[in-house]
């Protein structure tokens, strides 16, 4: 009898902490990773993203107000493009561009799209990307 009560009172917390741990491990592993995308989508233009495209590549960052890693992502990407004359960084406020957010299926912030010279998405990172991964992704764009 006492044992059933014990199980009953501790079962919820075990379920919560167990599933949160599983989700947290997946979260940590997936956030920031750049996923390559097959070149199939429609090209984005300067007027759609509200900023000029780079002649080789463009990093389009979607940000929001309640987002801690957005600031670090902005700093990193601005830093990356500072040394590359043919790559540009454009930051878009997701909240005021919901139509574009829906169209591109942006679900969380920061999300960074990597566009090639013609404005077609070739990869995206959900969460703050890693510096070397950004460089590797850019190097892959001829």
């Amino acid at each position: 009898m006492a044992q059933t009560t014990l199980v009953k009172s501790f079962l919820p917390i075990l379920i919560v902490l167990g599933s949160a741990t599983a989700y947290g491990l997946w979260y940590q592993k997936s956030r920031g990773k750049i996923q390559a995308k097959a070149i199939s989508g429609k090209a984005l233009t300067a007027s759609i993203i509200g900023g000029d495209l780079g002649s080789r590549a463009t990093l389009v960052q979607f940000s929001s107000a309640f987002c801690t890693p957005c600031r670090a992502t902005r700093t990193l990407l601005e830093n990356v493009v500072a040394d590359l004359s043919d790559v540009r960084h454009v930051e878009i406020d997701a909240e005021t561009n919901l139509e574009l957010v829906r169209k591109l299926d942006i679900r969380s912030t920061p999300t960074t799209l990597i566009l090639n010279s013609s404005g077609v998405e070739v990869g995206r990172a959900i969460g703050a990307p890693k510096r070397d991964q950004v460089f590797a992704a850019l190097a892959a764009i001829k």
Partner: peptide
Amino acid sequence: AAFNYCLGCEVYLL
């Protein structure tokens, strides 16, 4: 606390 999870990042836009 454990994973530095950003709730606003994941939930607000949705």
